[in-house]
Simulated scan of single mutants.
Amino acid sequence: MTQLTALGKSSQPAPAARRGGRRPRRAIVLNLVAVLAGLLVWTLLATVGVQGLPTPLEVAAKAGELIADGTLLGDALASLRRVLLGFLLGTLLAIPVGFLMGWYATARGLLEPYVQFFRTIPPLAIIPLAIVLMGIGEVPKVFVIFLASFLSSVVSTFQGVVDVDRTLINAARVLGASDRTIFLKVVVPASTPFILVGMRVGLGSAWGTLVAAELIAAQEGLGFRMQQAQLYYDLSTIFVGLIAIGVLGLLMDRLLLLAERRLTDWQERR
Rank of each mutant, 00 (worst) to 15 (best):
L147Y: 12
R270K: 08
G20T: 03
V29G: 01
N31Y: 06
K62T: 15
K185R: 14
P96I: 01
G74V: 00
E58H: 01
V188H: 00
L203D: 06
A229F: 05
P96G: 10
V247R: 11
Y104H: 09
F150H: 09
M101S: 10
S178E: 11
V115Y: 03
G246Y: 04
R119N: 08
Y114C: 07
S79L: 06
F117N: 02
E214A: 07
M101H: 02
G241W: 12
L251E: 02
A212L: 15
A218G: 08
R82M: 05
F150C: 11
L89F: 12
P13C: 11
I245D: 07
D165M: 05
G90T: 06
P128S: 09
A14S: 15
D265H: 00
F150M: 15
A107R: 05
R225C: 05
S156T: 01
T106M: 13
T47K: 14
A17G: 13
T237L: 06
A37I: 15
L85G: 00
L151C: 09
T5I: 15
G202I: 08
V83K: 01
L203W: 13
N31L: 13
V33T: 06
A60R: 09
T192L: 02
D253Y: 10
L248H: 00
G204L: 12
F150S: 09
V142P: 09
S153K: 05
G64R: 08
P122F: 04
L66N: 10
Q230P: 05
Q219L: 13
D75P: 10
I67A: 12
M199Y: 07
T181N: 13
G137P: 15
Q159V: 01
M101W: 07
I28L: 14
D163H: 13
F158S: 04
A130G: 07
